[in-house]
Design a binder for these strands. Sequence first.
DNA 1: ACTTATTGTGCGCATAACGCACAATGATTT
DNA 2: AAATCATTGTGCGTTATGCGCACAATAAGT
Lengths: 255, 255
Amino acid sequence: MSTAINVRDFSTSLARGLRVITAFDRDHDEMTLSEVSRRADMTRAAARRYLLTLCELGYVTGDGKYFRLTPRVLELGFAFLTSMHIWERAQPFMERLTEQVNESCSISVLEDSDIVYVARVPTKRIMSVALGIGTRLPAFCTSMGRVLLADLRPAELEQFFVQAEFRPLTPYTITDPALLRDRIAAVRQNGYAVVDQELEVGLRSIAVPIRNQAGRVLAAMNVSGHASRISVEEMQQRFLSPLLYAAEGIRMALA
Amino acid sequence: MSTAINVRDFSTSLARGLRVITAFDRDHDEMTLSEVSRRADMTRAAARRYLLTLCELGYVTGDGKYFRLTPRVLELGFAFLTSMHIWERAQPFMERLTEQVNESCSISVLEDSDIVYVARVPTKRIMSVALGIGTRLPAFCTSMGRVLLADLRPAELEQFFVQAEFRPLTPYTITDPALLRDRIAAVRQNGYAVVDQELEVGLRSIAVPIRNQAGRVLAAMNVSGHASRISVEEMQQRFLSPLLYAAEGIRMALA
DNA sequence: ACTTATTGTGCGCATAACGCACAATGATTT
DNA sequence: AAATCATTGTGCGTTATGCGCACAATAAGT
C-alpha cells in the first residue's frame, strides 16, 4: 500500500461504504441492519444509510429484515477481471500444457504477500469458480509465489520479509526466514521452483516465470499434481520442459 | 430497483466512488486521472480524491501517470460469490449431467431483465472464467431466462415486459411481446424451455427449473449444445430426463 | 523555446453525512 | 394477554467532509 495520503484527499464515506460490502461473506450472506453495523464497525444509522444507498444502486437487496448482496457487485470485481484480458492469450498454451501433462495449470501475480490467480485450466476434474480466478494463497509456500519472490528487487524482498507471516500450513512448510531466502535464491539460480506439500499435504507443484520482452517477470505459471501420482523428480523431468515451452509461447503471444 | 429513497439517506460519495471503480473496463484497464474523471462524469479533483482513497485501501494502484485496478476489487464481488455457496452442492449433479450428455451445463438466477450465471460446468473445452459465473444474458431469449420468467407472478411478469428491451440478436430471435408471452405460457405448461439459436446462431439449449421445497423456482439449469451436433428433437428426447433428474437431485440436496 | 495539455493541491464554502434520541415495531418471555 | 427486550425507522441539529475553483508545476508536443 502507498504511503499515507493527505487526510483531506481521503474519502471516509467511500471507505466506510466499501466496508459495508465486505462485511458480507460466506458465513454472513444475509444480515440484519444491526449485524451489518457491528461487522462494519459503524453506527446503525450510518450502516443504514450505506445499505439504502447500495440498494438504490442495485448492489444490495433487502426483504424488510435481511440484507444481501446482489450479482451486480460482481461488476465491481469484473472491472478488474476484464482488465486482465491479457491472460486470455495464455489460454491456448495452458490448455495444451494441461492436455500434455494431465495436471492442472495456473497463472498468478504477486500482491502484497500473496499470489492471486489470474488464469487457470484445471484437469478434467472441474472446480467451482470460487476456487479459481481471484484466489489468494500465501506466496512464501507456493511454487508460483517463490518464482515471483525471486524476481523482486532486494528492497522489495526485504519489505516482503518484514510484512509476511510464515505460518506453517503442513508439517512440511518451511517457515525459517533464512531457509526461505536460500530457497528463493535457488529459484533465482535455477529458473524454476518446486514446492512439495508445504501448502497442502499431498500437493506438489512446479512453477516457472512468465517474462515480458524486457525480461521482467509478469507472472508465474505452474502445474500441480498429487504426491501419490507423481514424485518431485518426475515432476522436474516431465513437467519443466513443457512449462518453459508454454511460458515462452505466452511471452511471444503477449508481445 | 427499489422506490427512490429519502435523499438524506443516500450517500453521494459512496455512489460516486463506485462510479470510479466501474469506469475501468476491458478497453480501459489503465487510465490517467483526466480519463477517469471523464468516464466517471466528475471533476478531476473529485476523481483524484476517490482514486487516492482507493489506492490507500488497496483497490487501485498507480504508477504516477496511469491508474489501474488491483485484484483486491475481486473481494467486493467475491462477497457475493461466497454468498452463493449454496450452488456448490449442485456441482456433483451438474458434473454427472455433463458427463452423461457431453454438453455444457449452467445454473442461473434472474436479475432485472437478465439471467446471471451462478454455476457452470463446461464440457471438455475449457472456457475462461470471465465467461462463467456472473455472466449476464438477456432473459427473454435464453432457455433459462424463459424458465425463470415462467415462474414470475403476473405483476412481476408485467413489470418485466415494461422494462425489458427485446432486441433481436439473431434472425431467429423472437421479439414480438405477444409471441413471447405465448412461449412463456408454454414453458409454464410443459415445465421446460427450449431455445433454438435466438441468443446466438448455432446455439441450442434446453432448461428446467430448480425448485425449493415450497415449489418456488430458485434458479434454472440448462444444457446447451451446437446446432450442428444436435437437433431440437434430440435435445428434448436425450436431455430432458437427465436434466429433470439432476434438478430433482439438486432440490433434495438443497433441502 | 514556446505552446498546449495534464496534474497537484490549497482553500473557502456549502452541504452531506454524522450520531443521538425517541417512537414504532417485532420477538420473546412471563 | 401483558410485559419486556431487541431491533428498526427516522427527524434533526451539528460539524466535518467533500466540493470545485484557480493557480502553480510538470510533461508532452511542435
